[in-house]
Amino acid sequence: MIKKGLVLIIALLFYVSGFYWLSLNQPMETFSTEHMNARLLPSVSFLKAVCGEFAPLVSDVFFAYGAVLASNFNHSTPKENWGYLFQVLKLSRDMDPYFKDPYRLVQGIYPWIAKMPDRAISFLKKGVDFRTWDAILSYYIGFDYYFFSERYRESARYLFMSARIDHNPFMGTLASKIAYRGGDVDTGITFLTGVLKNTLNEKTRNTIMMRINALRGVKLLKKAVTEYKKRYGRMPGSLEELVSKGIIHKLPENPYKTPYRLEAGRIRFD
């Protein structure tokens, strides 16, 4: 009995000291961002085949892994590592395309830190197809197109989408401004007319109406400028020339109280 007790005590002492020694010598876990090979990651179809109904949980795990990696990345992180992280987050997204967090993380880092807005846009587009009730994803895409790529038509398209989901007239007005900047006046008018029908607030209605009228003026003037070019083979020097040459009777009134003007071939109203 005493012998057994002695053996037990010695074994316990070894266990405690061994465990303590091991924990002291455990190297600190650091994330090496070198040698990240995206090809080593499993494919989505393989994961889906293996995980079945547990796919959302696997999506969470990949997201958590991606978030930890992202916290170690900065402006000087090599391109390949950004590619690796992108694949990790893509796995998270594809295992559960409804999960919002991967989209949020990608938008938070890829355009800003990785300087890869196109990657963010392509990533977010899948979310728009699935999270049909979520206005923020199309807003992100619209913002990225506008701010990083200066592609105004595409930006306006997604901002209109966002405004439609959210029933947000202000977003609609913003989108129409960007559409106008991208030279797409018709889309702006059509969209704002739709927004106007569903807007009850008088003040908001007036704001939208003003924008529609201004765009209608632009549309009329654009048509007149095209006609002028067809007749005289050049751009008019000013909008007043359209009146003096008899293409239109008078210049439309700009609801923003500044006259319409022609600047670098574009009609400006604000």
């Binding site: 959302p56 949980l57 969470d60 997201f63 958590a64 978030a67 559960d96 409804y98 999960f99 919002k100 967090d101 949020r104």
Partner: peptide, 14 residues
Amino acid sequence: PFIGFDVCRVVIDF
């Protein structure tokens, strides 16, 4: 709470 922002969705799935 450590996994992400969308915690309610994660807990339901879990």
